[in-house]
Structure formats: C-alpha cells, structure tokens
Amino acid sequence: MKANSKKSRVSKSRLVEWFQAYTFLAPALLISLVFFVVSILFSLYLSFNNVNLYASTYSFTGIENYARMFTDGRAAIALKNTATFSAVVVPAQTIAALMVAFVLASDKLKGRKMFRLIYFLPTLTSSSALTLIFMFIFNVYGPVNELLLNVGLLSEPINFLQNPEYSLKVIMVMNVWSTVPMFMTIYLASLVDLPKSLYEAAEIDGASSWEKLLYITVPYLRPITTYVVLMGIIGTFQMFDQAYIFSNGSGGPANSTLTVALMIYQYAFGQMNSMGYASALAIMLALIIFVVSLVAEKVNNRNS
C-alpha cells in the first residue's frame, strides 16, 4: 500500500464512503439489533426457561416448553385454526386480487380510476372498526341472515358469531375483503408495465379475455404472485386483532377463533407467568411460517 500511492488514495476514498454508508445505516442497524436480533435471541432464551419476569427468576427447563405444545390440545386447535385460515384466505385473496387487478387494468373499462379508489377503501379501514361492522352484518338478526331468509336459502337464521362452525369463516371473509385491495394495488402497479403488444398479438391469434389472463397476465405476474403469497402466508399465520376483537380475547366460541398469535398473547400477558411457554409458541410459529413460506416459494417457482 505504501509503495503504490494511487491505490492508497482509492482506499482512502473507499474508507470515507464506507464510513458514510455506515453512518447512514447506523440508526437502522441499531434499531434492528435491539428490536429484532436481541429480542429474538432473548425470546429463544426464554423459551427454554420457566420464567417469572417480575421476580426476574429464570429456571432452565430444557425443552419442556416445547414438549408441552405436543400434549396441549389447545395448541393443536390453534395451529389447525391458523392453518385452515391461511389455506383458505391466501389462495382466495391472491386470486381475487389478481382478477380485480386484471379487470381494472383494462383500458376499455370506463371510470376505472373511480373503481380503483373504491376498491382500495377497505384497506384504509382500521381492523377493529372492520370487525365490529362485520359482527353487525353477520349477527342473528342482521342483514346477511335477513337476505338468506328472504330468498329462501335458510329457514332458520344462523348464529354466525356464536356458532363455532361459522365464526372462523366470518373472520376469513372479513380478512379476504380487507386484504384484497392492498394486493390488487401491487398487481396493478406491475400490470401497468405489461407490454400491450403481447395482448394485441394474442388478439390477432384469436385469444379470448380468459386465455389472455391465463397465458399472458398470470405468467407475467409470477414474481409478484410469489411476493403476494408470501405476504399472505405471513399475515394470516400472524392473525391476531380480528380474532381478539371477535371473541373478546377468549378465542371462543369453543376455541373456534383461537389462533396461534392469540394463544401467545393469552400466555404472555395472562396472570400465570407462562412467558416461557409463550416464547416457545412464538419461536415455533416463526419456524412454521418459515417452512410454509419456503415450500410455497418453491412450488410457485417450479411452475414457471
């Protein structure tokens, strides 16, 4: 380095650049270090201990917290609810978002800006307000039951909110309704870049709208779909607020709206000092999301 002055100048300016870069990165790095890295490590530590945070007592219990999950019937129910929820909501919201985006991207549609605005509105609604509105719509004497009774599909109203068979389904509908606009916008942004010539060429070959969607739009949007599906999986597996408001925190009726995230909350902030178990559940949830996301990505890419 001493022998070559040119090289040393380069490395000096590199050093300045390096310094600048890390100065700008520092706040973000610090925040992720404290709130992500350290928190995750601490949570991992908690999951192997029996914890009382008030008294700061930690007794190492090995994998006891993890073993408890497999004998805990509620954990199985929570996982089943969450997985069912995800399995229904993710495909539904992805397909719906894609269809709506496809239609709204068409030049032939009049007033599409207006439709885009209207369709985007659900995203702006807070999920607590949304939950209350849906609880109104689906109550025993509410509009949905009235409609079904009037058209003769039902002879008795369904208690959507208190019947364990229906309660999770109501939340599914609610969740799809509120997440579609967000994903629709993401699809739309990408569709704007789709070359019109592809559609025109297909039209000359006599392709219908449906064929254009299936053979041009869908393959073109595959990378976006990967993103949408991953976000969907993560979002649905972490679903908390709607289930919490719907069941007033209990996960009822009969554990039908108990999600893994709600269960973690119950154990972490209950009065039983079960923070260790809550941490183990959280770590397990993270692992499950990781694996499911990985599989979904692999499947989506293999199809291309």
Partner: peptide
C-alpha cells in the same frame, strides 16, 4: 390469580 384463566375458558365455551 387464576380468575383470568378461568374467565377466558368460561367465556370461550358459554356461547356453545
């Protein structure tokens, strides 16, 4: 201290 836990369980099954 177990009231919250019992209350959660009760509220959970009362609707059924």
């Amino acid at each position: 201290v177990t009231l919250t836990t019992v209350s959660n369980a009760f509220n959970n099954y009362l609707p059924t």
